[in-house]
Each structure stands twice: as structure tokens, then as C-alpha cells.
Simulated scan of single mutants.
Amino acid sequence: MLEPENEKRDRRDLADSLKQLRKAAGLSGERLAARAAMSQSKISRIESGRVLPSVADVERIMQALDVPADAQLDILTAARSANVDYVSARSAARLGIWRRQAEIKALCEASTTVRHFLPVIPSGLIQAAEYARSVLTPVIEGDTARDVDRAVKARMEAQEVLDDESRTFRFLLTEQAVRLKQAPASVMVKQLRHMAAVSERPNVDLAILPHTAPITSPPLNIFVIYDERLATVEMFSGTVALRDYRDISYHLNVFDYFRERAVSENDARRLLNSVADEFMRGPD
């Protein structure tokens, strides 16, 4: 399901199915557009495969076509499948990790609120350059090769989106993500101080889930939510993009669950500076 060729086939099949349903209902594209409260051009782009409809779009189209509930299941399943993308780490490395940083910047620029859930590592948007270099340098056998210099440069350039105060950025880290020594102690100190400084920005909410917080659900994956239209979930092997509104709603609930148990503002800065002091006292 997640291979590129299968993704393309899923999208083609969905477009063809919606077109056939419209024809079977004896409706023109204009008539369907009116019933579904969509533009005729959007209906045309969906049926030609040029635009991927959201699950909500497909539900509206099927309601407009009076498709029986039992006949909707397969189409909705196809829509949910088509609204999941997977990009492997190897594919991203072949294209250039720096390109991914440019994509992240573009996604942020197209969003009003961006939420980052970070159980194991700070977001690239709040990484100091030396720390970014450390975490972007391959160290595990099987890690994909990459142009580290270019990737670090692109990551620093992506951080320019934080300067736009019309956008809100919410970073939610676990204490593990703060304490995990992913670079030499001197670099960790700079990284922690950098995050404390970033948290002072008026458009940034940086919160930390302390080890002492009572939780009954484990913080499993890194994910980012762009407004309420897209969620990306990171794994060792790659990134999954979710567009089904139910998946996005669930991830928003997960974010809120942990955010309610986190510390922020001065409390978060005190924790960051306290951990930085510990790194300063310890061996490099």
C-alpha cells in the first residue's frame, strides 16, 4: 500500500471510481459540483487525478450522488488509502536531505499553526547549527549517506519561518528529548540555551513533558501537524503523511493530552537551563 507505484494506482483507481459513480447517477460535472457545494473545476481535477480529494471531499461527493451507505465503504477505504503517503529515508537521501528541509519550510509557510510532538529529539526548527550537524551525521550501519553541510545549511534556512509572527509554532518535547546526549556536552549546552532563547519568541510555545508527569499513554512517535489538514509521522525508515481528517483529529488529541501535562514558559526555561548546567558540570 505504501510503495510509490501502489500510491499512484490507489489515486488513479479512486479518481476513476468517483467519475464512474457520477456517470452512473446521470449527473454532469457542473450538476455534481452544485450538489456537493464544490467548484466544477475541482470536480474535474479530482476525476482526472490531478487533485487528490480529501476523505471529507469524497464523503461530500458520495452524499451528493446519493450513494447507498453499504456501497460507500470501498470508496472511503480507497480514499483513506490514497490519503496516506510514505517516503522512505533512502528515497529522501537520494533526492537530498536538504530538499526535505525546503519542503518543511514551505509547509510551515502555508500554515497558520504548526504543532511538533517531539518525544526523542528537538525539531530541526529549534536546533542550533552544531547540534544539527551532530544529529545529521550518519553513525549507524545502514544509515543513508547525505551531504551534511548542505543539509545543515538548509535546516538553518528553514528556521527563517519562525521570524513570521503571524504564524504560531508549538513545540512539545519530553524531558528525554531534552536530556538525551546526542552531541558532545559543550554542544548540548549550546542547544539547550538555544531552545530557551527560542521559547522567548512571542509566536512560539515550547513545552516540556517532565519525567514526573503522570501519563497513562506512551509518547511513541515524532509527529508534526500543519493546521488541521496534514500530519506527518516520523519513523526510523521514513515519514508517513496523513490527510484523513480522522487521523489528524486523533493526533491533535494526542498532542493536547501530553500538552496538558507539560510545563512551559518560565518553568520550561528553568528545566532547560538546569539540564544545561548538568552538562556543563559533567565530562564532555
Rank of each mutant, 00 (worst) to 15 (best):
E5V: 15
N6W: 12
N6Y: 08
N6V: 14
E7M: 14
E7L: 15
K8A: 15
R9Y: 15
D10S: 11
R11C: 10
R11G: 09
R11L: 13
R12I: 14
R12V: 14
D13T: 13
D13S: 08
D13K: 10
L14K: 04
L14A: 07
A15E: 04
D16M: 13
S17D: 07
S17C: 07
S17Q: 10
L18D: 02
K19W: 09
K19Y: 09
K19R: 15
Q20E: 14
Q20M: 11
Q20F: 06
L21Y: 09
R22G: 08
R22Y: 10
K23C: 02
A24H: 10
A24N: 13
A25P: 00
A25R: 03
A25E: 05
G26H: 12
G26N: 10
G26R: 09
G26D: 11
L27S: 08
L27F: 14
G29A: 07
E30G: 08
R31D: 03
R31G: 02
L32M: 13
L32F: 13
A34F: 01
A34K: 01
R35C: 05
R35P: 04
R35E: 07
A37G: 03
A37Y: 15
M38T: 01
M38S: 00
Q40V: 07
S41K: 10
S41T: 14
S41D: 09
S41V: 12
K42M: 14
K42F: 14
K42N: 04
K42G: 00
I43M: 00
I43F: 01
I43G: 01
S44P: 08
R45C: 05
R45M: 10
I46Q: 00
E47R: 02
S48F: 04
S48L: 14
G49L: 07
G49K: 04
G49N: 06
G49W: 02
R50H: 03
R50K: 09
R50C: 01
V51Y: 14
V51E: 04
L52K: 09
L52Y: 08
P53I: 08
P53C: 10
P53F: 11
P53G: 09
P53E: 02
S54F: 15
S54Q: 05
V55T: 15
V55L: 10
A56C: 05
